[in-house]
Amino acid sequence: MIMARRRPSSASLLRGRTEDQPTGHYDKGLLALFLMLLCIGLLMVLSASGVVAERMYGDKYFFFKRQLIYAAFGGVVMWVAAAMP
Rank of each mutant, 00 (worst) to 15 (best):
residue 2 I to R: 12
residue 2 I to H: 02
residue 2 I to N: 02
residue 3 M to R: 10
residue 5 R to K: 12
residue 6 R to F: 14
residue 7 R to N: 06
residue 8 P to N: 15
residue 8 P to Q: 13
residue 10 S to H: 09
residue 12 S to T: 14
residue 12 S to M: 15
residue 14 L to M: 13
residue 17 R to D: 02
residue 17 R to M: 02
residue 20 D to L: 13
residue 21 Q to I: 10
residue 21 Q to E: 10
residue 24 G to Y: 14
residue 24 G to C: 10
residue 25 H to K: 13
residue 26 Y to T: 07
residue 26 Y to G: 06
residue 28 K to C: 02
residue 28 K to R: 06
residue 29 G to L: 10
residue 30 L to C: 05
residue 31 L to N: 01
residue 31 L to I: 12
residue 31 L to P: 00
residue 32 A to D: 12
residue 32 A to R: 09
residue 32 A to N: 07
residue 34 F to S: 08
residue 34 F to G: 06
residue 34 F to N: 05
residue 34 F to D: 05
residue 36 M to N: 00
residue 39 C to Q: 11
residue 39 C to I: 15
residue 41 G to K: 03
residue 42 L to A: 07
residue 43 L to D: 05
residue 45 V to N: 00
residue 51 V to Y: 01
residue 51 V to P: 00
residue 52 V to Y: 04
residue 53 A to K: 07
residue 53 A to I: 11
residue 56 M to E: 11
residue 56 M to G: 02
residue 57 Y to D: 03
residue 57 Y to M: 08
residue 58 G to L: 13
residue 59 D to K: 10
residue 61 Y to K: 07
residue 61 Y to M: 13
residue 62 F to R: 14
residue 62 F to K: 11
residue 63 F to G: 03
residue 63 F to P: 01
residue 63 F to R: 03
residue 64 F to G: 01
residue 65 K to W: 07
residue 66 R to A: 12
residue 66 R to Q: 12
residue 67 Q to N: 13
residue 67 Q to I: 05
residue 68 L to M: 07
residue 69 I to P: 00
residue 71 A to K: 05
residue 71 A to E: 02
residue 72 A to T: 09
residue 73 F to C: 08
residue 73 F to N: 04
residue 75 G to E: 01
residue 75 G to D: 01
residue 76 V to L: 09
residue 80 V to C: 01
residue 81 A to L: 09
residue 85 P to V: 06
residue 85 P to H: 07
